[in-house]
Write a protein that binds this DNA or RNA. Sequence first.
DNA 1: CAGTGGTCTAGACCACCGA
DNA 2: CGGTGGTCTAGACCACTGC
Lengths: 248, 248
Amino acid sequence: MDKINKNSFTPPFYQLAAIIEKKIMEGEFKPGEPLPSENDLGREYELSRTTVRKCLSLLAERGMISAQQGRGTFVSRPSLDRAVFVMEDFKTQMKRQEKEVGYKLINVRFRKQLPEFALRLGMTPDEGILYYCRLLTANAEPVGIEHKYMCYKKGRPTLENEFQYKAFSEIIAIHTNFLPVRSQAVLTAESASEYDANFLHISTGDPVLRLQQVLYTRDEKPVGIGVFYYRSDRYSLISDIHPLKGER
Amino acid sequence: MDKINKNSFTPPFYQLAAIIEKKIMEGEFKPGEPLPSENDLGREYELSRTTVRKCLSLLAERGMISAQQGRGTFVSRPSLDRAVFVMEDFKTQMKRQEKEVGYKLINVRFRKQLPEFALRLGMTPDEGILYYCRLLTANAEPVGIEHKYMCYKKGRPTLENEFQYKAFSEIIAIHTNFLPVRSQAVLTAESASEYDANFLHISTGDPVLRLQQVLYTRDEKPVGIGVFYYRSDRYSLISDIHPLKGER
DNA sequence: CAGTGGTCTAGACCACCGA
DNA sequence: CGGTGGTCTAGACCACTGC
């Protein structure tokens, strides 16, 4: 039997998680079957129930097990057919890949009207709309283009600099009286418009990833819409589902 | 000051999380600034440190705060510019939308060779490759098409039925000696090939979402590759980032 | 009813950080 | 050095499941 080394640098709850995971992967604990109870695990590995629970919650987070009050904790059916894609803001992503990020402000305009798709989303022009558009580059090559529409209201004078570097939700928070607290994003594939294709150095009609982001206030009023188009050859989303490693 | 109601059905750690979140959203705790220490919070709300920690870990999971050992717990910069897309298997997703799922097996073949992109991913034909292809429908309308390639090894007789209904990783586990434990997925936009477009009832060249999934064994050997193409008008990924609600 | 997971407490020791 | 978060313990009460 594997034992817990209390002098290791990796804490017991983590060691236990690795042990249980190993037993699941080796078939000692099978999908659909219950794990030993928390108390039993505590006795077996000489750990307090609290520690056992912390370990189990770690495994549950990763979707390997799931607990049912009053019944037990069960090994989940393996579901490698899941994928989790995390999109952070462009700068963070590119830095992780050690690429040089660049933004180029293409257009800033005050508008009276919203494009049709924005109206369908329930956004209203109120006192007007501020539109801007940026080109996103990595190592000086165009990767994506974004179009943003935000409610305009009692705006302080806007500085071009801000559009270059600040996050959308921040800009809205600063320049309007609205505070976005919820964000919904939809990811699809589309054909590039002539306008976008030009800036992205691709052909009109080429496939692009389209990310549409809508920011809502606390009372569910949409106050900002951003639409991103990414070159599919230079930008993709990656999901990695893998087991715990032995050490941290 | 908000108080913790210990007789409520929503547990204290959750109530506290909602209180702290509210204070963050109302600006009482500002981004970049530290929260009161865990001990202070415990004193203020008459909760044990353990409970306070459970609450903080909840907020940390949601990216609202982050702890730094020896320094404190800090309010994160708001990052609504993040998106998290979770893709489950097709059946689960469609059921959630209350759509009638259908699979149609289009092709099953034994192959000696792998397509070029699979070789680039480090997969080797070994004793041969089993290829199959399914059409995914929702309410009888074509939504996606998937192509799967798996290592073939000492296979038991394969049943067409299985290809219809079982998850890819399960099929591999059953029909080979390989057990997939890691999955990597890449999401991009592409133009539909003539073959795929035909089945999807779209035009060749139309944009589609392309999901490529590679399954690896414990020793990092790729043993299965699945490529999905989804009609972009009938399939999209959605991410929702929103604050805690008052009640559970 | 006995056994399970869900929550909470009070207290302890540690590693880390900054003055 | 004192204060912070990170971890662990031993014990408690609860709500839920199944017999």
